[in-house]
């Protein structure tokens, strides 16, 4: 049966376990003579061995973590691309529908003029665009 002294020594054993106290002769003698405190100290040491073993460094494979994040980003961007494509198809359908209505209503002349402007003016814009981008990105550098 545990007495008050044992409670005192067992509390000290916990401090010793956490390295907040040192094992002196007094407590060593008590452990030798007291069966319960001896058992208590052995159990503490077993716990320490188990905890130390569980705390061994587990190698972290950073490459795999990085690859997993990259995969997540890929999936997210693919989903976003699909949504953007659907939105684009809807917008284009509306625009082409409007063009179709114009054509059927007899605005063919205006459509032709528009196409002439696109074919005439756009190449100039394209040259400027390519030049600016080449300079900006130093593409041939």
């Amino acid at each position: 049966m545990m007495d008050k002294k044992c409670t005192f020594y067992q509390n000290r054993l916990i401090d010793i376990f956490y390295e907040e106290d040192i094992m002196d002769k007094e407590i060593q003698e008590h452990i030798i003579n007291c069966h319960e405190c001896n058992k208590y100290w052995k159990e503490l040491k077993e716990v320490k061995i188990k905890v130390d073993k569980d705390n061994e460094e587990i190698p972290i494979e950073y490459i795999k973590i990085s690859q997993a994040f990259d995969k997540v980003e890929d999936i997210k961007s693919k989903r976003l691309n699909i949504i953007n494509l659907v939105i684009f198809i809807m917008i284009s359908s509306v625009l082409l529908g409007i063009g179709l209505v114009f054509a059927m209503q007899g605005f063919g002349r205006e459509i032709i003029y528009f196409q002439v402007i696109v074919h005439t003016v756009f190449p100039i814009f394209l040259l400027i665009f390519v030049k600016i981008r080449t300079l900006k990105e130093d593409y041939n550098g």
């Binding site: 953007n84 494509l85 684009f88 198809i89 284009s92 359908s93 082409l96 529908g97 063009g99 179709l100 054509a103 059927m104 007899g106 063919g108 002349r109 459509i111 032709i112």
Partner: peptide, 27 residues
Amino acid sequence: IEKLQEVPLIIWILLAVVLLIQGSWIF
């Protein structure tokens, strides 16, 4: 230009579909 109104509707629709497919692929 007036003859554009004589073009059958199906031709316009096909042209619109081709433009839609082209635009979507480029996108």
